[in-house]
Nucleic acid binder design. Structure first.
Lengths: 219, 219
DNA sequence: GTTGCCGGTGGCACCGAGTGCCATTATTGT
DNA sequence: ACAATAATGGCACTCGGTGCCACCGGCAAC
């Protein structure tokens, strides 16, 4: 069921070489995907574009989706480690915003390419699914990272989970908005997203003077 | 690329018949999936369990995943319509909470089965992916439903989107928590989730006295 | 009742994603 | 230069999914 490449010791020479090859394959393989759409291109096409065989392709990427999403996967883990480095008594949203600042250059090194990839992900269900699963995985990790900062208690898990969800929601909204807009700076978009989040939060805590049917529930 | 079943007029006799057959197939097919895991069972197995051929299976379900997720898909659309029926000047989170109350019986009609299915979804990447894509689709629709309630403006889209994300985050957290706990009432779990969300929101607006490195950002 | 239409079904061949296995070809260390 | 080892490619196979067509059952018209 699983490919079990021995995957050499991290930091070793071969390991770095493998990473380079992987990056190179992805770079070449992604071209026809962007050009003709995800479903219109077969693995053999990708392999040909990268100058390797189908079999070798699957030694570097477990699925067809991965060749598109792996860069963002790594961005996500970078975001997580940056977050973990922030002081524990800082508000999670603040930490996250600052962590975003640190890893933003990953996306801006080649903005056009990053945008193309995100658009591709956005419009291809299979890719979006894969992407959402990874995102879900990040959320779990963020949840525990946040839970560590909170005092223990019966409600802590749910609290941590929701905080994580809200935070990642801002990140996702920002990245998608940035991908769709053709010429805006990513920093600006991120700022907007976080400001909007603050506004949402404010609206929820200071409910408008709803004169419409008032529910019995306390909120 | 697509199966194009003529799909008879909604409400007609055949259409209802089809829905029944579909429900029946799903009910039978899901048994081996829960018993042996999603990946360990082939389509032929499912078809055999339902007493039909592989070809016919694909006339009722487009993918293997769908036979597990379709019930929740329908629950989602029911939630959305219930939400749309709430007065426009009500706080979105309030509307959502009340809408949840209306559709909760869908899940509680057979709690054991629903829980089993959710656990299956939770532990199977392919299913989780499919589920997240649908959820993403709901979020888009919630986004426009919420946007209709908001005054127009340049920030409205982002605001609506984040509100939708936060709301659905509560729903998802509640459903997952409920699925994992073996004996709690779903109403209680939902209440907890929404209360936790209120707490998160409160924490974010009244930041703790962080003495750690104060960021320059306004929040 | 026989004929002709029609929706649902099953069988079959086919495509693409992914994997196990093994032979072949670089790479590396000595 | 040579052996050990890693990387590669080819091949056959499984499984999800689709197109095509033949078949079977009901049902109306004659």
């Amino acid at each position: 069921m699983k490919e079990k490449e021995p995957s050499p010791a991290p930091g070793s020479l071969q390991e770095r070489k493998q990473r380079l090859v992987r990056a190179n394959i992805a770079e070449l393989a992604v071209v026809p995907l962007i050009a003709h759409g995800f479903d219109a291109v077969t693995i053999d096409d990708l392999a040909k574009a990268a100058g390797i065989s189908k079999r070798t392709f699957f030694r570097y990427f477990a699925t067809k989706e991965e060749v598109v999403t792996w860069e963002f996967d790594e961005t996500g883990t970078a975001l997580l480690t940056a977050f973990r480095l922030r002081p524990r008594d800082e508000q999670p949203l603040v930490s996250l915003r600052l962590a975003m600042g640190l890893i933003i250059d990953r996306l801006t090194s080649d903005p056009e390419r990053a945008r193309e990839l995100m658009r591709l992900i956005h419009r291809t269900p299979a890719l979006r699914g894969r992407f959402l699963v990874t995102q879900d995985h990040w959320r779990e990790q963020f949840t525990s990272a946040i839970a560590e900062r909170l005092p223990g208690g019966p409600r802590t898990p749910m609290l941590a989970r929701l905080t994580a969800t809200v935070s990642m929601g801002a990140v996702d909204a920002a990245m998608m908005a940035w991908a769709e807009s053709s010429d805006r700076d990513i920093g600006t978009v991120v700022d907007e997203a976080f400001e909007a989040l603050a506004a949402v939060v404010k609206a929820a805590t200071h409910p408008a003077q709803g004169r419409g049917s008032r529910p019995k529930a306390k909120w």
